Amino acid sequence: MATPAATKRLTKEYAAITKSPPPYIIAHPSEKNILEWHYVLTGPPDTPYDGGQYWGTLMFPPDYPFAPPAIRMHTPSGRFQPSTRLCLSISDFHPKSFNPAWEVSTILTGLLSFMTSEEMTTGSVRASEHERKLFAQRTRWWNSTGGGSKQTGTQSSNTRGIGAIKAGDGGAKFRSEWPELDEENSKWMKEKRINPQTGLPLPAQSSQPHCSPDMAGLRRRPGGSTTGVGVVVQEGRVARDVGQSWLGRNKWKMVLGAILSYILVARILGDGAVTAATTAH
C-alpha cells in the first residue's frame, strides 16, 4: 500500500503529465492501484521504432520517491525482452543511484532515450533494424490481441512478479487500461485487413468483376458446354450457312453434273450416228 507521501506525489505527477505530456509519451496510474502505472511510448521518427505503440508498466514502491520503480515493456520491440524487468539507472536495479527529484516524466523520457540507443543491459536484446521495423508494424495488433492468442504462455523467472503481463492474455489487460487506444487499434486492423490471429495482412480479394447471368448466357450455348472463342466461331459458321442459298452452296456440283451430262449425251448421239452409217452400207 502506498504511503500518504507516495500517493500525494504520484497524484501530483499524474496531473502534470496529463497536462503536459513529454514527446511520444503518455501514462496514467491504474484505477485500482496508484503504484501501478501504465505507459505507451510512440516510436519516434527516423528510428526503427517509428510509429510503433510500445506499452509497459512502472511499479512504484510504497516509499516512492525515495526508491525507484520496476520498469517493464510488454510489447515486443526487438529492443527489450517482453515483460522483463529492465536494469537501468532509473529502475529498481539501482536504488542507491535514484534521485528523488526525478518524476514519472523523467523516468519515461530516460527509458525512451535508452530504447533508441544501442546500449545493452539486463532485459535488452539485439536485433537488426529490419527486425525492429517489423516489430513496430505489429505493435498495435499485439497490444490489442495479446499476440493473437488467449492461451497463457510460460514465463521465465525474470518476467514474474507484480506488473508482469502473461503472454497470450488476448489483450485483456491492455484493453482494460487503454480502452480508447484499443478501439483505435481495432479500427486500424479492420482498415488494414489484419488477421487477428497472425497479425499479418489478409490475402487481397480478387478485383475481377463477375458477369451477370445475361452475360454468362452469351458465353454458353443452350444444351452445350462450349464457351469463349470457340462459340463465336461456331455461331458465325451457323449464321453464314443460314445466310447462303442452296444454289450458292451447291453451284460447283451443278456445273460438274452439267458437264458430265453433256459428255454422256454427246457420246450417245455419236454412237447413234455411227450405227446409222453402218446400216446404210
Rank of each mutant, 00 (worst) to 15 (best):
residue 278 T to K: 11
residue 131 E to V: 01
residue 14 Y to T: 14
residue 266 A to M: 13
residue 235 E to M: 11
residue 170 G to D: 00
residue 257 G to L: 14
residue 96 K to V: 05
residue 3 T to N: 07
residue 267 R to Q: 06
residue 245 S to G: 12
residue 108 L to A: 09
residue 38 H to Q: 10
residue 28 H to S: 09
residue 281 H to S: 12
residue 32 K to G: 07
residue 244 Q to T: 11
residue 164 A to K: 08
residue 6 A to P: 00
residue 98 F to N: 01
residue 126 R to N: 13
residue 39 Y to Q: 11
residue 277 A to T: 11
residue 179 P to H: 08
residue 273 A to Y: 14
residue 277 A to V: 12
residue 158 N to E: 15
residue 261 S to I: 14
residue 192 K to S: 08
residue 51 G to C: 02
residue 146 G to F: 03
residue 279 T to M: 09
residue 60 F to Q: 08
residue 7 T to K: 15
residue 201 P to E: 03
residue 239 A to E: 06
residue 151 Q to M: 00
residue 196 P to T: 04
residue 1 M to F: 00
residue 116 T to L: 02
residue 102 W to M: 15
residue 84 T to A: 10
residue 112 L to A: 11
residue 260 L to R: 00
residue 245 S to P: 07
residue 280 A to H: 11
residue 230 G to V: 10
residue 105 S to E: 06
residue 147 G to C: 02
residue 221 R to E: 09
residue 276 A to Y: 04
residue 48 P to A: 01
residue 207 S to I: 08
residue 192 K to Q: 14
residue 91 S to V: 04
residue 279 T to E: 12
residue 9 R to A: 07
residue 262 Y to C: 07
residue 235 E to T: 15
residue 78 G to Y: 01
residue 262 Y to D: 01
residue 185 N to Q: 13
residue 265 V to G: 01
residue 80 F to G: 07
residue 30 S to C: 04
residue 30 S to Y: 03
residue 69 P to H: 06
residue 194 I to A: 08
residue 28 H to T: 10
residue 148 G to F: 00
residue 25 I to Q: 04
residue 246 W to Y: 10
residue 70 A to Y: 07
residue 221 R to D: 09
residue 147 G to Q: 02
residue 212 S to P: 05
residue 150 K to M: 01
residue 30 S to Q: 04
residue 142 W to T: 10
residue 54 Y to V: 06
residue 179 P to Q: 10
residue 259 I to G: 12
residue 57 T to D: 00
residue 243 G to E: 02
residue 208 Q to G: 00
residue 111 L to E: 02
residue 53 Q to P: 01
residue 231 V to A: 10
residue 258 A to T: 14
residue 44 P to F: 06
residue 72 R to F: 01
residue 98 F to I: 03
residue 212 S to I: 10
residue 175 R to W: 00
residue 154 T to S: 13
residue 35 L to S: 08
residue 257 G to I: 11
residue 145 T to Q: 03
residue 258 A to H: 07
residue 247 L to P: 07
residue 216 A to L: 07
residue 237 R to S: 02
residue 16 A to G: 01
residue 103 E to T: 15
residue 249 R to P: 00
residue 73 M to W: 03
residue 171 G to E: 05
residue 222 P to W: 03
residue 183 E to V: 08
residue 280 A to R: 11
residue 59 M to C: 10
residue 204 A to C: 09
residue 24 Y to E: 13
residue 66 F to D: 07
residue 21 P to L: 02
residue 100 P to A: 09
residue 169 D to I: 12
residue 129 E to S: 05
residue 172 A to I: 11
residue 235 E to P: 14
residue 146 G to V: 04
residue 167 A to K: 00
residue 261 S to Y: 08
residue 87 C to Y: 15
residue 236 G to R: 12
residue 254 M to A: 13
residue 250 N to I: 00
residue 159 T to M: 10
residue 149 S to M: 01
residue 176 S to K: 15
residue 52 G to R: 09
residue 255 V to Q: 07
residue 273 A to V: 14
residue 275 T to C: 03
residue 274 V to R: 07
residue 254 M to H: 13
residue 226 T to V: 14
residue 87 C to D: 15
residue 87 C to E: 14
residue 242 V to Y: 05
residue 271 D to C: 03
residue 56 G to D: 02
residue 4 P to L: 06
residue 94 H to L: 01
residue 58 L to R: 04
residue 192 K to H: 12
residue 107 I to W: 02
residue 32 K to R: 02
residue 127 A to D: 04
residue 243 G to L: 08
residue 273 A to T: 11
residue 154 T to N: 12
residue 132 R to Q: 09
